[in-house]
Nucleic acid binder design. Structure first.
Lengths: 206, 206, 206, 206
DNA sequence: TATGAATGAGAATTCATTCAT
DNA sequence: AATGAATGAATTCTCATTCAT
C-alpha cells in the first residue's frame, strides 16, 4: 500500500510535467537539466525517478498530455459553442482560425517552442511519431468534420488535403513567430486572415 | 606558403560541414558529437578545430551556408528560367510552388530536419536569429517581386502578408513530412496544389 | 534535511583540499589533474564539483586556508606563549625566528613548494594577489607589533621596512631549501641565526 | 653538411630562447604555448623541434643560459669596476647591493617571474636542480670572495652562511615585488639598504 | 631546411541516473 | 517516500609533437 494516495501522486506528476514544460520551453530539452526541473518543482533530485523513469520519458509524456498541460482541452468545446449549423464552411473555418490565433499569447508561443522539439524527436522516434500522428489526426478531423457537415458530398481526399494545408499554415506561421520571437502584428494577421478566408472559398465552389 | 592550398582547405571545410549537416540531420545537434563528426569525416578529433573554432560555429555556419550545402543555390536560377512576364501571378506562383516541391526528395527532407533546429536555436540566439531573418527576407522577396511585377499597384502590406503565409504553409508542410518521415504522396500534393492555386486567386482579384 | 551533516561535508572538503595540497606540492598545480586528486582522495571524478566549482577554486581555497591546512594556525599562539614584555626586541624577534624555523620540517618544506605557485599565480591573478597581500600584512604586523611594543617611538616606515626584509629573508631561505630539496643544516642555520640576531641590533640602536 | 651555418643556427636558437623567455615571463610556462613562441619568434611550428627537442628542453636551456639571456653577464664586470681593495667589506657589499637593486627594472622583475618557475621545477627535476645549484654557487662566491678579500681569516662557514642569507634576502625581496607587481618604492628600499648595511657590520666585528 | 596540417592523448567539466540512508 | 550525495560515462576543447610535402 503506497504511503501517498494515488491522487497525490497524479498531482505531483502533473506538477513535474508542468515545470518541465515551462523549462523545456524556456531553455530547450537539452539545456534544461533534471536539476533545474526538480529544483523548480520543489522536490529532490532523486524523487523525480519515482514518477518518471528518465528524462526522455518526461519529454514523451509532455507530448502525450500536451493538450491537458497547455489548457488546450477546451479548444473543441470552444468550437462547439461558436459553431452553428447555419454558418457557411468559410464562416465556420474562420471561427476555427480565430479560436486558434486567439491562443497565440506570448506564453503559448513559448510553449510552441517545445512542439518543434516534438517534431524533431518524432523524426527519430517512432513511438513519439505515432503519438504525434494521432494528435494531428484529431486536429485534421476538426476541419474535416466542418467540411463534411456543410458539404456532405465533398471528396474525402480533398477534405483531407485541405485540412492538412490548413494546419500546416497555422504551424508554419506559429513557427515563424516563435523562432523570430515576435508576436504576430495584428494588422498582418488581419491580412493573412483575409487570404485564408479567400482560400476557404475553394470549398464553397465545389 | 601554406602546406595545402586555399582551395583544398575550403574543400575540407566543406567536407566537415557536409558531414556535420548529415549527422545533425540524423541525430540532432546535441546528440551528434564532435567525435562523431570527425570520425565520419575521416579526420582526427583535433583537426576540426583548425577549421571551426567550436561546435556552435559549425552549426551557425551550416545555417549561413544552407543553400550552398543543400544544392539549393540553383533555386533562383530555376525560377529565372521558368518565369516569364506573360504569365499571370497565379501561373508564376505555381512555378515557385513546383520548383519548391520538386526539391522535396527523401534526402532533402532529411536535411530539412536541421532547419527546425535552426528555428529552435534562433529563438534563443540573437545572432542566429538575424541570419535566419535575412534568409527569410530573401525568400519573401521572391514572392513579393512576382506580385509587384504583375500587379504593380498591390498594397505592399498585402503582398507581405501573402508572402509570409506562402512560405509558412510551405515550411509547415515540410515540417509535417519531415516529422512524420513520409514523402508527400503525389495525389495529396496535387490536391494541395489545387487549393494553393485557388488561394492565388486572391491576388488576381485585387 | 541533508543526507550528510554539515560537519561531514566540511570534513570531506578538507580531505579534498589536503589531497590537492599534497598533489599540487608534489607535481605542481598544472601537472596534478582533477583525476589525480579525486583518485587519491578516493572519490569519483564528478563529486569534486559538488565541493568546489573548479580546479582554480581549489587552488584559491588552498591559498586562503593555507594556515589551517598546514597546521600553521598555532603560530600566533606559540608566539603569545613565548613572548614576554621584559624581553628585548632582539630576544623577541629571535623567538619569532625560532618558531618559524622549527616549522621547517621535511613535510612543511614540501608544502612550501605550493607557496611559490601562489606567488607565481598572484602575479597574474588580482583576486589571489589581494588574498596573499592580506596574509602578508598579518605577518608583517607580527614583527611591527613587537617593534612598537618595545620601541613605541620607532619610525613606522623603518618598522615597515624591517618587517618586509624580515619575511623576505625567511621566504628567500625557505625557497632555497625547497628548491634544492635539502633541509637546512643545523650548523648553517645557527650561523644565519647569529647574523639575524646582529641585524636586530639595528632596532636596538634607534 | 648543414644547409645553414652553425652560426646562424646558434643565432636562431638564441632568438627562440629570448622569445620563450619573454613569453614564459609574461604568461608562465604552462600558459605560453609552442604556438605562441613560434608565432612570436617568426618561425613555423615544426621548425622549433629542429632546435629543441621539446618544450621542456627550452625551459631547461633558459635556466642554463639565464645570465646570457638576461644580459646579466656584465654583473661581475660591473662589480670588478666598482670594487676596489681599499673599501671596507660593508662598502663593497653595498656596491653589490646597489648593483643588484639597480637591475630591478619593470622588465627584469618580469623575468624574475620565470626564476620562480625554475625553483619550482628544480624541486622536481634533479638535472635542473644541479644546474641551479651551480649558478647559485657562483653568486655565493661573489660575496664570499669579497669577504675573504678583506677578512682573509674569516671562518669559511660564517662566510658561507652570510652569503646564503644575503642572496636569500635579495631573492625574497624580488619575489615579493614580482608577486605583488609593484616596483620597490625607493624610500622603502633606502631603509632596507640601511638595515642591510647594519647587518654587514656583523662581518666587520669579527 | 622549413612548413603548417594533422594527430591523439589528455584535460576540465557536466549531468542523467543510482543508491545508501 | 524522500533525500541529495555519489557515480562515471561522455562531452568539448587544447596542445605538444609528428610528418608528408
Amino acid at each position: 500500500m503506497p504511503k501517498i494516495s494515488e491522487e497525490k501522486k497524479k498531482q505531483r506528476q502533473l506538477d513535474i510535467l508542468k515545470t518541465a514544460l515551462r523549462l523545456f520551453s524556456q531553455k530547450g530539452y537539452y539545456a534544461a537539466s533534471i536539476d533545474d526541473i526538480t529544483r523548480e518543482a520543489g522536490i529532490s533530485k532523486g524523487l523525480i525517478y519515482t514518477y518518471f523513469k528518465s528524462k526522455e520519458e518526461i519529454f514523451l509524456e509532455l507530448a502525450q498530455r500536451w493538450d491537458e498541460l497547455t489548457n488546450n482541452t477546451s479548444f473543441a468545446d470552444t468550437l462547439d459553442r461558436v459553431l452553428s449549423d447555419d454558418m457557411s464552411v468559410t464562416e465556420q473555418l474562420m471561427c476555427v482560425w480565430d479560436a486558434t490565433v486567439s491562443q497565440w499569447t506570448e506564453e503559448n508561443l513559448n510553449f510552441a517552442r517545445i512542439k518543434f522539439e516534438f517534431w524533431l524527436e518524432a523524426s527519430k522516434n517512432e513511438a513519439l511519431r505515432e503519438k504525434m500522428k494521432e494528435k494531428a489526426m484529431s486536429s485534421l478531423r476538426i476541419v474535416e468534420d466542418i467540411i463534411f457537415k456543410t458539404r456532405p458530398d465533398m471528396d474525402p481526399a480533398v477534405a483531407a488535403a485541405f485540412s492538412r494545408l490548413w494546419w500546416s499554415q497555422i504551424d508554419g506561421l506559429a513557427a515563424y513567430f516563435v523562432s523570430y520571437r515576435l508576436l504576430p502584428p495584428e494588422s498582418e494577421m488581419a491580412r493573412i486572415r483575409d487570404i485564408i478566408r479567400h482560400m476557404c472559398g475553394y470549398l464553397e465552389a465545389r
